[in-house]
Design a protein around this nucleic acid. Structure first.
Length: 554
DNA sequence: CATGTCACG
DNA sequence: ACGTACGTGACATGA
């Protein structure tokens, strides 16, 4: 498609009458703190307004943006965010070119070199208007128009509401934690310096490799992707058997990570006026249809380690409220059961069994009462690996078992779960033919790597082709749930809020008194968000912070 | 700006 | 023979 003509800057008044009569108008805004607006109509040039001008024209803008014209833009969520500052909103109908391109899984637009923010805003906004018809037609042809119109576009406002609401953080607690971590890090640094015999910067993989492999002559465990000598966690765990410094480095790394990324990162992003942090959800970043979260990323808050849990404790409910968490149980494997139709997997979920235990029974040929913790652990790794296209090599590495044993386990898995095996075959064949895969709700991912000459590249494509219908199918389900939940929250008129999505979990805050009933309501909505051939099961918990949550029974 | 590392689902 | 588990984002280092 041709680039639009260079936008002419015009006075707002010159355009206002044209815009008021237009069926489609171009609307874009950036810089929430100091809004910059672009407005235009087909063939009528563009008007650029800064924050001050926007305020002066607020009344006229409200009429235009609240009118019946199709508001066409590029990244509507960003536009909504900037307009909030002027107390303005966009009324339906809308068109979001960026979201349309995402649903079509088109390659991402490269940034124009040397272009300033205002010029980029005008260019993208005007293009959104001129490309609307073509993009809608392409979406129809590609079978993703319903996905765009009924799922992604309505989700924009829901996500903006979550971003705006933010999450409360206990600043006093976090500052105390910062001092605690700093002191522990300083102690570890002193011990490391003493053990190394010189001041060692553990944050430098280069210095660390020199210490471990040159000075201390410890064995190299594996290479980095670029051929260097790796000092990662896996390596250090191996080296821990040969030298006490490895363990110290691991301890240092853990705390340094938590301190820099989470404690300091969150304090930096905390709004001192409200005591809340506000993430941005990227609705168009992930190839599989998942969301991502940035500035700060609130989808990777620690949970696994003890020190990590101290970070979770910093996320709190306001006084008189509770956090409510609702997470889908085994959603990926349920989606696999649904798309593959595998009888054993379906049976397992229909009966409400422990799926990892069932897999252990199937692959080890034993009765449930004979399954020990190690067998279940292995079975769990197999269930994870299956979804990712894991090889015997990978499973062996994961479990620390010989490759032959891993190959045997995988072989038995596919014998017992033959429906899964057949679905993988069929999916692979169709993916190769189409150069793309879809989720069961029609979301599309093109995978050009499937026809690569290079075997490694092609195999990567094959794993992506296996994983995407599953991970993407799960993403579709939780998005539907979020839409259904948000409709209920509107009915509740602000008596509770949805504040985060973490791929298979939704986090809410709700008044303490009504929290159990609220949690039950959310559970029901989420379990009913999509109709699969197996039940969807949601576990709900509530508590004063994101660490101390108690399970609520149905 | 690339690299290595590591936090999460 | 190929390389070896999918999807993200943030941080520190050092060229």
């Amino acid at each position: 498609m041709d680039d639009p003509p260079a936008p002419a800057l015009a006075e707002f008044a010159d355009l206002e009458r044209v815009l008021a009569r237009a069926a489609n108008i171009a609307v874009g805004a950036i810089r929430p703190e100091d809004p910059l607006l672009a407005l235009g109509a087909e063939g009528k040039g563009t008007c650029l307004l800064d924050g001050g001008q926007s305020r002066a024209h607020r009344k006229a803008l409200a009429a235009l943006l609240g009118g019946r014209a199709v508001k066409c833009g590029h990244d509507i969520k960003e536009t909504l965010s900037s307009l909030e500052r002027l107390d303005l909103d966009l009324a339906e109908p809308m068109f979001d070119a960026r979201l349309a391109a995402y649903c079509l899984n088109l390659p991402r637009e490269k940034p124009v070199v040397g272009e300033d923010a205002a010029a980029a805003l005008v260019r993208k906004t005007v293009r959104a208007l001129s490309e609307r018809a073509a993009l809608e037609s392409r979406m129809k042809d590609a079978g993703v128009l319903d996905l765009y119109r009924d799922m992604e576009l309505p989700l924009v406002r829901v996500l903006r509401g979550m971003e705006k609401a933010g999450v409360a953080v206990d600043e006093t607690y976090l500052r105390r934690l910062s001092r605690e971590f700093s002191s522990a890090i300083a102690d570890l640094q002193a011990e490391l310096d003493a053990m190394a015999g010189f001041p060692i910067n553990v944050n430098s993989p280069k210095q660390l490799a020199a210490l471990l492999f040159d000075k201390l002559q410890l064995p190299e465990v594996h290479k980095t992707s670029k051929g260097g000598r790796s000092t990662d966690e896996e390596t250090l765990k191996v080296l821990a058997a040969r030298h006490p410094i490895a363990e110290k480095i691991l301890n240092y790394r853990e705390l340094a990570k938590l301190q820099s990324t989470y404690v300091e990162g969150l304090l930096q992003r905390l709004d001192p006026k409200t005591g809340r942090v506000h993430t941005t959800f990227d609705q168009t970043g992930a190839e599989t249809g998942r969301l991502s979260s940035l500035n700060p990323n609130l989808q990777n808050i620690p949970i696994r380690s003890e020190s990590g849990q101290k970070i979770r404790r910093a996320f709190v409910a306001p006084k008189g409220w509770l956090l409510v968490s609702a997470d889908y149980s085994q959603i990926d494997l349920r989606v696999l059961a649904h798309v593959s139709g595998d009888e054993v997997l379906r049976d397992s979920f229909s009966r409400g069994e422990d799926v990892h235990l069932r897999t252990a029974c199937e692959v080890f040929h034993v009765l449930p009462e004979k399954v020990d913790a190690d067998m279940r652990r292995k079975a769990k790794a197999v269930n994870f690996g299956i979804v990712y296209g894991q090889t015997a090599f990978g499973l062996a590495g994961q479990l620390g078992i010989p490759q032959a044993e891993a190959a045997d386990i995988i072989k038995r898995y596919f014998e017992r779960y033959s429906g899964v095996s057949r679905w993988f075959e069929k999916n692979q064949e169709e993916a190769k033919k189409a150069g793309a895969v879809r989720t069961f709700l029609g979301r599309l991912r093109r995978i050009p790597e499937l026809s690569a000459k290079n075997a490694a590249v092609r195999q990567f494509g094959e794993r992506a082709a296996r994983n995407t219908p599953i991970q993407g199918g799960s993403a579709d389900i939780i998005k539907l749930a979020m839409l259904a939940v948000s409709r209920e929250l509107e009915r509740m008129d602000g008596k509770a809020r949805m504040i985060l999505q973490i791929h298979d979990e939704l986090l809410f805050e709700a008044p303490e008194a009504g929290a159990p009933a609220f949690a039950g309501k959310m559970r029901k909505i989420m379990e009913g968000a999509a109709k699969l051939d197996v039940p969807l099961v949601v576990d709900v918990k509530a508590g004063p912070n994101w660490r101390d949550m108690e399970t609520l029974k149905a």
